[in-house]
Amino acid sequence: MRVWGLKNCDTCRKAVKALEAAGHGIDYVDVRADGVHGGDLERFFAAFGEALVNKRSTTWRGLSDAERAGDPVQLLAAHPTLMKRPVIEADGQLTLGWDAKTQAKWLENHA
């Protein structure tokens, strides 16, 4: 299982802790330190669309209107912390965020 997030993000830490407790092996990608491969960004955007861009982040608020209107994938490549997180991938499936539905998907059958 691969998880993309930020090491200092509380939600990402909660997700990793719960996934590991459920027996999942985690390959963690810190989007700030490690970056996100362009091909991964394309796949994520194809799966989640505009939901992938965290428009409540301080990074988003600091962007100009012109930057906000640009290509979302290029924007995420330039500012990886704009990505909503965590993105979790396993068995060819992707999820975004750590809500109750995502937790049920990854934790229910693995405890």
Rank of each mutant, 00 (worst) to 15 (best):
N8D: 15
N8F: 13
N8Q: 15
C9T: 05
C9L: 06
C9H: 00
D10T: 08
D10V: 03
T11K: 07
C12W: 03
C12G: 02
R13D: 09
R13P: 07
R13K: 12
R13V: 14
K14D: 12
K14Q: 13
A15Q: 01
K17F: 11
K17G: 12
A18I: 01
A18L: 04
A18M: 06
A18Y: 02
A18H: 05
L19P: 03
L19V: 03
E20S: 07
E20W: 02
A21K: 01
A21Q: 02
A21P: 03
A22C: 01
A22N: 01
G23C: 10
G23S: 08
G23T: 08
H24S: 09
H24G: 09
H24K: 12
H24V: 09
G25V: 14
G25M: 10
G25T: 15
G25N: 11
G25K: 14
I26T: 08
I26Q: 06
I26V: 11
D27G: 12
Y28I: 01
Y28G: 10
V29W: 09
V29C: 14
V29P: 11
D30A: 12
D30K: 14
D30Y: 15
V31D: 01
V31N: 02
R32S: 10
R32M: 08
R32F: 07
A33Q: 14
A33V: 14
A33N: 10
A33Y: 09
D34L: 09
D34W: 09
D34Y: 07
D34P: 11
G35M: 06
G35F: 05
G35W: 06
V36T: 03
V36S: 06
V36L: 05
V36R: 06
V36Y: 04
H37T: 12
H37W: 13
H37E: 15
H37S: 13
G39C: 02
G39W: 04
G39V: 03
D40P: 08
L41R: 08
L41S: 02
L41A: 05
L41P: 03
L41C: 06
E42L: 13
R43I: 12
R43H: 13
F44D: 02
F44H: 02
F44C: 07
F44A: 08
F45Q: 01
F45D: 04
A46Q: 14
A46T: 14
A46K: 12
A47M: 05
A47W: 02
A47R: 11
A47S: 11
F48K: 03
F48A: 04
F48R: 01
G49S: 05
G49C: 02
G49D: 04
G49P: 03
E50C: 12
E50S: 15
E50R: 14
A51L: 15
A51Q: 15
A51I: 10
A51F: 08
L52A: 09
L52H: 07
V53T: 09
V53R: 06
V53E: 09
N54F: 00
K55N: 09
K55V: 08
R56G: 11
R56N: 11
R56L: 06
R56F: 00
S57D: 05
S57Y: 05
S57F: 04
T58C: 01
T58M: 06
T58S: 11
